[in-house]
Design a protein around this nucleic acid. Structure first.
Length: 683
DNA sequence: GCGCGAACTTAGCACGATACAG
DNA sequence: CTGTATCGTGCTAAGTTCGCGC
């Protein structure tokens, strides 16, 4: 009975999606065809990491032998316990009880040994060697604040505003309907935004033009408004050429001029790029306010072309501590508000005019406040590791449930787990591009094949996900899942929701019951990290040299990127650069042949031959790596999904310098992991 | 339980800086 | 030394999650 659809559910959804233009959507992003598809299929084995291997081994897992010798002072989960009693909120107390049972033993063995760094209020180290100390500050060895409190002291200089508009020189003309027309400053500024984009394809798109023109007219004087009634009669070519010349001139600048600009940027960074948070100087991520311009969303965005207005001090909310020096607004201006909220991490905020959402200035990933959160994220994923088998068994049971919503939840969770899909919140139609995640999948996004490519129960996914990146995948599923999907699709239109009894809120609430802190995205983190760990084990050959090992690392990384569908447009110069590399390889081969010939005559050349062999090998590895990486982006997973301790441990185990894996910025972000992970770290 | 805003993480791309080849 | 390929960074859009008020 209960598995039947509610009456009218189909109707409701039909209505909701009625004017979506399916065809356009399909066309939108076909860049992900060909190679990626093939690779995806080839490496699909990685999509569902081998379950058996992942089982935590009861004894060895929680306490790794090395842990004792480490001054790991703040085992996260323990700390939580410490702080919980102080909390007032009933919900937190409930949580803490639950957690106590579940995982008290985790990290138990980690002793807090080193004595020097405890005091958080900046003691003896405050003054002496300040710079060096700051650079090396190991926040991960200090105590955390109780949950909810983000800082005690915060001082900063406020944001850097976009440079003011510089009117065009007199000789740069704008023509309307063939006649020269002098625009008012405001109208001119907006016109220049359009002129700068003239070469982009999207200035030819109807929506873009319509949105732009509407917003442009708002900036015009009434006279301009009455004259300029048709965008197609506007001639921006002189403006466009002027800007091209400008950017050309910038490139041609002398060394001194470039140096001057560089110095100016450094000055800005020094002055505005840092804040003081709790006795430490921390780098700010985005201290510059976004300049005005024309909005270009990703994919087929209904608001493309709209004017992103200039942000003024009067729009700005400053957040800092009461006892700090409040940054002064620019002369003649006032802040919208100054507040002192230490329950949040941002320093500056304003409301943006396209979606009406709030934008923030926050700290750099290397900061304590971001790093702690990142660390915590991976600890949550590791907790999932401990109970993932139970959860998997549970959702498999739920496939048989009498209740439709339980079945839908269980199938959705299966997708999230197996395919690392995103949760998929509902989106307001007409506000953003039409993209979906798991819970918001529609019937039209999947195709069921009882048999395909020689496999049974195949599901073919084809939809646009975050950033309108296409997700295309064919996966075999269990019979029960297949049957359920058939049931969910019964009597529905293509534009109806596949999971009509489910949304992210319902799903996450359920997950919360399965494990504290569990949400849909934890599965992505967990599966990404466990895949990396498992792939590294599988792919690393002990006898390989360093370049070959790094290729293995990149391949493991790639498996994750494919799992998470992190694509990129193939670099514009890809073919060319591959050819260059091939040329080099051929040259190296010749050189090797020559050297070998000489060797026969003159034995001491042996070393030279070896060197050339090594160089050749390096080049070949590089070529393979590049080819395999054509449309895969490794950065996103490396930065957001892979527990850095896995990579650090791998580097230590095989004697690979960590610089080969992480560049400077990444090493700063992952300083905590580089410092604490030993070669035997287990995710 | 729902809708909504706030806060914070995740995302790809453009472009400038840097390395490298000629 | 200069032009070009590659790499790193900045930018900011687009997600997820949480908590609040009804």
């Amino acid at each position: 009975e209960k598995t039947k659809h509610k009456d009218g559910s189909s109707e409701k959804h039909k209505d909701k999606h009625k004017d979506r233009d399916k065809e356009k959507r399909k066309e939108e992003k076909n860049k992900s065809s060909g190679d990626v598809k093939i690779k995806k299929e080839k490496e699909n084995g990685f999509s569902s990491p081998p379950r058996i291997k992942d089982e935590p081994d009861e004894d060895g897992y929680y306490a790794s032998p090395k842990e004792d010798s480490k001054p790991l002072k703040r085992p996260r989960e323990e700390d939580d316990e410490d702080y919980k009693p102080k909390k007032i909120k009933t919900e937190d107390i409930k949580k803490s009880k639950k957690r106590k049972q579940e995982e008290e033993e985790d990290n138990k063995s980690k002793k807090t040994k080193s004595k020097d760094k405890r005091a958080p209020e900046g003691d003896n180290k405050k003054k002496k060697q300040k710079k060096e100390e700051e650079q090396k500050w190991k926040w991960w060895e200090e105590e955390r604040y109780p949950e909810g409190i983000k800082w005690k002291f915060l001082e900063h200089k406020g944001p850097v505003f976009a440079p003011p508009y510089e009117p065009l020189p007199e000789n740069v003309k704008f023509y309307y309907d063939g006649k020269v027309m002098k625009l008012s400053p405001k109208a001119e500024e907006v016109a220049t935004f359009f002129a700068k984009m003239l070469d982009h394809e999207y200035t030819t798109k109807d929506i873009f033009r319509k949105n732009f023109f509407k917003d442009w007219r708002k900036e015009m004087t009434s006279e301009e408004k009455s004259t300029i009634t048709n965008l197609s009669k506007c001639d921006f070519t002189q403006m466009s050429q002027y800007f091209k010349a400008q950017s050309e001139a910038r490139k041609q600048m002398s060394k001194e001029e470039k140096q001057k600009i560089k110095e100016e940027n450094e000055r800005l960074l020094k002055e505005y790029g840092f804040c003081i948070m709790d006795n430490h100087k921390e780098r700010i991520a985005n201290f510059k306010i976004e300049p005005p311009g024309l909005f270009r969303g990703r994919g087929n965005h209904p608001k493309m072309g709209m004017l992103k207005r200039r942000i003024m001090p009067e729009d700005i909310i400053i957040n800092c501590s009461k006892d700090s020096k409040v940054p002064p607004p620019p002369p003649g201006h006032k802040w919208k508000e100054v507040r002192h909220d230490n329950k949040v991490t941002w320093l500056v905020s304003w409301t943006e005019n396209i979606q009406g959402s709030i934008k923030y200035i926050m700290l750099n990933p290397s900061s304590r406040i971001k790093g702690e959160k990142d660390w915590q994220k991976y600890e949550t994923a590791r907790r999932l590791k401990k109970c993932v088998d139970k959860i998997r068994n549970q959702y498999r049971e739920d496939w048989k449930s009498k209740e439709m919503k339980v079945r839908q939840r269980a199938v959705a969770l299966y997708f999230i787990d197996k395919l690392a899909l995103r949760a998929g919140n509902e989106k307001e139609e007409g506000e953003t591009a039409d993209t979906v995640g798991c819970c918001s999948l529609r019937v039209e996004h999947i195709n069921l094949h009882p048999e395909l490519d020689g496999q049974e129960y195949m599901v073919e996914f084809d939809f646009l996900g975050k950033d309108s990146i296409r997700y295309y995948n064919k996966v075999p599923v269990e019979k029960r899942v297949f049957k359920n999907l058939q049931l969910f699709m019964e009597n529905k239109q293509p534009e109806d929701d596949l999971f009509d009894r489910l949304n992210t809120s319902i799903l996450n609430k359920h997950l919360q019951d399965l494990m504290e802190g569990l949400t849909a995205k934890v599965f992505r983190t967990y599966n990404a990290s466990i895949t990396l760990q498992q792939q590294l084990k599988e792919l690393t050959t002990p006898d390989d040299n360093i370049p070959a090992k790094i290729l293995s690392y990149n391949r493991a990384n790639r498996a994750v990127a494919i799992l998470c569908n992190h694509q990129r447009a193939p670099p514009k110069t890809f073919e060319k650069s591959m050819m260059n590399l091939q040329t080099k390889i051929d040259a190296k081969k010749d050189q090797l042949a020559d050297a070998r010939r000489e060797l026969k005559i003159w034995l001491p050349k042996k070393k030279a031959v070896q060197r050339i062999e090594e160089q050749l090998m390096k080049l070949e590895v590089q070529a393979t790596d590049r080819e395999e990486n054509k449309q895969i982006a490794l950065g996103t997973s490396k930065l957001n999904y892979l527990d850095p301790r896995i990579s650090v441990a791998w580097c230590k185990k095989w004697g690979i310098p960590v610089e080969k894996i992480y560049n400077k910025t990444q090493r700063e972000k992952f300083a905590w992991a580089i410092d604490m992970a030993e070669d035997d770290y287990e995710f």
